[in-house]
Design a protein around this nucleic acid. Structure first.
Lengths: 198, 198
DNA sequence: GGGTACATGTAATCAGTTACATGATTTA
DNA sequence: TAAATCATGTAACTGATTACATGTACCC
């Protein structure tokens, strides 16, 4: 059997969570959750689904007319493959592609580029603020109020599921980005301290 | 003229910084710096360089024998295109692909999956610690000691160039990851608080 | 001088992106 | 009912990954 990519498991995992769905519904689910830590554009869903069908991990069912919608479902083989991946050894891959940081890297140092850097920072800041707001909305529904138990209680909200924990990471990432670009905007790139919290 | 991707600017930018170089040297530079926020595998350098040569932004010069090494240099058109990109409007794209978070997302909630989650967290933690150590090494050379001027002085080390500032972001990201997976390892996914610092 | 690690490139395959086309549903 | 928007799919193209092949230097 071939070896499947992480993108394949995005599809398998979501299918397990939701039962049968359409590619479009998968796309929506991805945008709001997994897409934040596994970029996965809509058009790839079709390709990935086709591959999974070819290998017998998913079945598809198409409407005969109209928009010829597909409905995807897991097969037993699909469920097994997913379970195996979830319990198997994890590779460590964190790939980031952030055009803002790339531009920052290539800016001239010294005061000549200061205005450019500032403009870049302001732009990036706005974008990350927007993203942060997104997360807050999404997480609001995944959050539960503080448990009464004083042993486990900290301050703030807590999550109950691994899903919500992953999203919490995304939220923290955006907070980091906002803090970073704020510093750059206010003090210029030369004032960025690698560890502000120490 | 066609529109160039961010990967193209990675090559152009590095060529400007270093004068003429070989694809291999570019690769090494990327691994240690830009690769952290713009994933760019070695084999793509050849493809990208070829494209840039085709469009006249780069010239290449090949050894006649032996390993037929290339030497790449910027043309004036290349320098111009780079300058234009650096001053032009920035898109906001932050794509992340992190297999660890993906797995976490799909873990079962409840106590049944706790051991899996723990193992995952320990693995990811180790990997991110390694990455963090990397950054510390790379940044040590980009760091300057605190300036004496009390107006701009904070606590800790400061950076002088946009390059170092970008890397500082990477370092903070790894610190975030380490903190996150530590929490998951210690308390399970259900104990992750979205905003520990509040 | 043979082994190991580093350096360099190519071609085939696979994944991802863009651009487009069309069907359904809501709303003015 | 026309316009706008949401839903759905395909095909052509470009970018990325893998696997391989070979050259060069170092070191024992």
């Amino acid at each position: 059997m071939p070896t499947f990519s992480a993108s394949a498991f995005v599809v398998l995992g979501l299918l397990e969570q939701s039962g049968s769905t359409t590619p479009y519904a998968l796309d929506r689910a991805i945008q709001q959750s997994i897409g934040h830590f596994w970029a996965f554009p809509r058009s790839q869903i079709y390709a990935e689904a086709a591959r999974l069908v070819r290998h017998g991990l998913v079945t598809e069912d198409r409407e005969g007319a109209g928009r010829r919608r597909r409905t995807l479902s897991l097969t037993q083989a699909g469920r097994d493959t997913l379970a195996q991946w979830l319990t198997g050894p994890a590779e460590h891959t964190t790939d980031v592609r952030d055009e803002g940081l790339l531009r920052l890297y290539f800016q001239q140092d010294g005061s000549s580029g200061a205005a450019q850097v500032h403009r870049l920072a302001v732009d990036q800041l706005a974008a990350h603020r927007r993203q942060l707001a997104e997360y807050e909305k999404v997480l609001a529904s995944a959050c539960t109020p503080e448990p009464a138990d004083p042993v486990t209680a900290g301050d703030g909200l807590r999550f109950e599921t691994p899903q919500a924990a992953s999203l919490a990471f995304g939220l923290r990432f955006e907070e980091l980005a906002v803090a970073f670009w704020t510093e750059v905007a206010e003090h210029g790139a030369s004032a960025v301290d690698p560890r502000p919290q120490e």
